[in-house]
C-alpha cells in the first residue's frame, strides 16, 4: 500500500489554498453566473461608450421622452439625452464608487476588527472608537464633511476626481463599523482555538499567526460584509447625489438617474427601470459572487 501511495504521490505537487479556492469557486453555479454578469456589466460600462457613441450630455430637445428606438435603445429623457449612454457612463462612476468605498471600508473594518480582537490592549480603545463612529449621526456628518472639503478637493484634483475621492472616503469611513465588530467577535473565538496556541508553541510571530491562522478563518464574515458593502455604497452614493451633495447634477450616476427619473415615472417608466435594473443586477451578482467565494474558502463545504 505504501509503495503504491508513494508512486502516486510523487507526481502531485502540494495543493495550495488559493488553487483549491479557485477550483471550487468554478463549481459554484450561482457564483460563476454572478461573476459572468458582473464582468458583463463591467465590460459594458468600460467599453460600451466606444460602441454606443452618443454623448450622454448631448441635448436633443426634439427627441425628448422617447421610448426605445433603434437609435436610443433605452429611450431619451425630458431633455432628450440618450438613456443608454447615461446608464453606461453613470455605471462607470457608480461601480467605481461602490468598489472603492467597499474596499476602503472593508480594509478599515477588517484591520480594526483583527487588531482589537487579537491584541487585548488595543481592544478597549479601538472598540470604543467604533462605538463612537456608530453613534455619529451619519447624514449631518456627511453634510459637514462635504461642505468643508468639497471646494478644496475640487480645486486640488479637478471637480470629478475631487468629488469622487471625497465620496469614496466619506462612504468608506462611515460604513466600516459593522465589519469591525463582526470580525472582532470572530477573532476572539478563533484566537482561543488550540491551533493558535500550537502556532505560538512553534514560535510563530503575532503577525504571521494573524496572516496564517486568524485571517483565513474569519474570511467568511468579511466576504459577506464585502458583498453587502458594494450594494450599500452604491445606494449611499445615490442618496448623496439626491441631496445634491454628490456629483454635479449634469454628471450621471445610477443613483442620480434613478432619482431624476422618479418624477417622470408615470410618463416614461423606462427612465427608472434601466438604472434600477443596473443597480439590482450589480448587487445581486456581487452577492452571488460573495456566496461562491465564501463557500469556496471553507474546506469543509468544498467538494460537496
Amino acid at each position: 500500500m505504501t509503495d503504491q501511495a508513494a508512486t502516486t504521490a510523487l507526481g502531485r505537487p502540494q495543493r495550495s489554498l488559493w488553487g483549491d479556492v479557485i477550483r471550487q469557486f468554478l463549481k459554484h453555479k450561482g457564483g460563476v453566473a454572478g461573476l459572468v454578469i458582473f464582468l458583463f456589466i463591467v465590460f459594458a460600462v468600460v467599453f460600451g461608450p466606444y460602441i454606443h457613441t452618443i454623448d450622454p450630455q448631448y441635448l436633443d430637445i426634439r427627441n425628448k421622452n422617447l421610448g426605445p428606438t433603434w437609435e436610443h435603445p433605452m429611450g431619451t429623457d425630458n431633455l432628450g439625452r440618450d438613456g443608454l449612454a447615461q446608464v453606461l457612463s453613470g455605471g462607470r462612476v457608480s461601480l467605481a464608487v461602490g468598489i472603492a468605498a467597499m474596499a476602503l471600508s472593508l480594509l478599515l473594518g477588517t484591520l480594526i476588527g483583527i487588531l482589537a480582537g487579537f491584541f487585548r490592549k488595543l481592544d478597549g480603545p479601538l472598540m470604543r472608537t467604533t462605538d463612537l463612529f456608530l453613534a455619529l449621526p451619519i447624514l449631518p456628518l456627511l453634510l459637514v464633511i462635504i461642505l468643508l472639503f468639497r471646494d478644496t478637493l475640487r480645486s486640488a484634483f479637478g471637480p470629478e476626481t475631487g468629488i469622487f475621492l471625497l465620496i469614496v472616503f466619506v462612504i468608506g469611513i462611515t460604513s466600516w463599523m459593522n465589519t469591525a465588530r463582526i470580525v472582532r467577535g470572530e477573532v476572539l473565538a478563533v484566537k482561543e482555538r488550540e491551533f493558535v496556541l500550537a502556532a505560538r508553541s512553534i514560535g510563530t510571530g503575532s503577525l504571521k499567526t494573524i496572516g496564517r491562522h486568524i485571517f483565513p478563518n474569519v474570511l467568511s464574515p468579511v466576504m459577506v460584509s464585502a458583498t453587502l458593502g458594494i450594494a450599500n455604497a452604491i445606494i449611499t452614493e445615490s442618496a448623496l447625489s439626491f441631496l445634491g451633495l454628490g456629483f454635479p447634477s449634469d454628471f450621471p450616476t445610477w443613483g442620480r438617474l434613478l432619482y431624476d427619473g422618479a418624477n417622470f415615472m408615470t410618463l416614461n417608466p423606462a427612465r427608472v427601470i434601466w438604472p434600477g435594473l443596473a443597480i439590482s443586477l450589480t448587487v445581486l451578482s456581487v452577492n452571488y459572487i460573495g456566496d461562491g467565494v465564501r463557500d469556496a474558502l471553507d474546506p469543509r463545504i468544498r467538494g460537496r
Partner: peptide, 9 residues
Amino acid sequence: QACLNPRMT
C-alpha cells in the same frame, strides 16, 4: 479537532 487549522492542508 481544534489543534489543526481547518483551512490548511
